[in-house]
Computed example of a mutant assay.
Amino acid sequence: MNRTIEWNDILQLVLNATGETLYMVLLAGLFTLVIGLPLGVLLFISRSNGLYPMPRLNKTVGGLVNIGRSLPFVVMLIALIPLTRLLVGTTLGSTAAVVPITIGAFPFFARIVENALDEVDKGRIEAILAMGGDIWHVVFKVLLPEALPALLAGITLTLVMLIGFSSMAGIIGGGGLGDLAIRYGYQRFNNQVMFATVVVLVILVQSVQSLGDRLVRSLAHRR
C-alpha cells in the first residue's frame, strides 16, 4: 500500500498504539510485581545463611529464575505462543502479549528484589529477632520498608524494560507501538510513522525514568 498517510491519520494511529502499549506495560508491570516481589523475598530468606534456610528450594528457584533471565525475549515470545493461546485463547493483541512480557520480566525483577533486600542493615534484622520477632516481622517491618528506595528504583528499571518488551511483542502481532512501527513503518516504508513511534517511545521511557528517579530521591530525602 503506497498511499501517503496524512499526519492526522498518523496521530490517531500513534494515539491508539500508545494506549495499547500503556495497557500492556501497566498490566504486565502489575503481574511482574505480584510474582516477582514474593519470589525475590523467597530467594533472599531461603539462602543457606538466610532467615529460613532452604538450600535445595533456593537452588531450584534460583536456577529457574536464571533460565528465565538468560533467554532472549524474542525467542521467548515465539516459544510461549502455545502457553499464551492456552491462557488467553489467542496469540494476537495486547492482552495476549501480556503473557510473554510478564514471564520475561518477573525473573529479572525477582533478582532486583533479592539484591535490594541484601543491602538492608543486618543489625536491624538481628534486633528484631532478638526482641522475639519472627520471620514475617523481619520481612514486613524491616526488609521491605528499609529496601523501599532500592525497590522503587528496581520497579522503574523494570517498567522501562517492559516498554522495550512491549515494542518487541509487535513482531508476533502484539499490538502497541512496536506493531505500528512494523506494519505501517517498516512493511509500508513509511518513515513518518517510524519517526513518530520512535519519538513516543523515547518520551515514554524518559517520563517513566524521570518520575521513578524523582520518587526515589523524595523517599530517600524523607528517610
Rank of each mutant, 00 (worst) to 15 (best):
I45F: 00
A96N: 07
A28M: 09
P107Q: 11
V199K: 10
G176N: 04
G173K: 00
G89C: 06
G154A: 09
L83P: 10
N16P: 02
G173V: 06
A220Q: 15
V98C: 05
R47Y: 11
L86Q: 11
A105R: 01
L27Q: 08
S210T: 15
L33P: 07
P55L: 02
P149K: 13
L42E: 05
P38W: 09
L27Y: 09
V25L: 11
I67N: 05
G93E: 01
L129M: 13
L57T: 13
P145C: 07
E119F: 05
V25E: 08
W7G: 00
D9H: 04
L43D: 04
G93N: 04
A79D: 00
S218P: 12
G170P: 01
G68S: 11
R56T: 14
V208Q: 05
M24E: 03
V41M: 06
G68F: 03
F195H: 01
R56E: 14
G178N: 06
F195C: 06
L13H: 11
S210Q: 13
E146L: 08
Q192E: 14
E126I: 08
L144H: 05
G164Q: 07
N49G: 10
G132E: 00
G40Y: 07
V65C: 08
F195R: 12
R124W: 09
P149A: 08
I103V: 12
I172Q: 02
P149M: 13
L177C: 03
P145T: 07
P82F: 04
A147W: 03
V216G: 07
I5S: 12
L152I: 15
G185N: 05
V65S: 04
M161V: 06
T90L: 02
I125W: 09
A153L: 04
G89F: 03
L159H: 02
G173L: 04
L37H: 13
T21E: 04
P72Q: 05
S166I: 10
V208E: 06
V200M: 15
E20V: 14
Q206K: 14
I182Q: 08
Y186C: 06
L13C: 07
M1T: 11
L144M: 13
I35F: 15
G178P: 00
D9Y: 10
A220W: 02
T18D: 06
V202C: 10
A220Y: 01
N66Y: 00
F165S: 04
D179N: 15
R223Y: 12
R214N: 13
D9R: 02
L51H: 07
V200Y: 01
T95I: 03
R56M: 12
F109G: 06
L43K: 04
V65M: 12
F31S: 04
V88N: 00
R188V: 00
I128A: 11
R111Y: 01
L159T: 08
G170I: 03
I125H: 11
N190A: 14
V88L: 01
P53N: 08
A169G: 03
E20L: 09
L37K: 01
G63H: 01
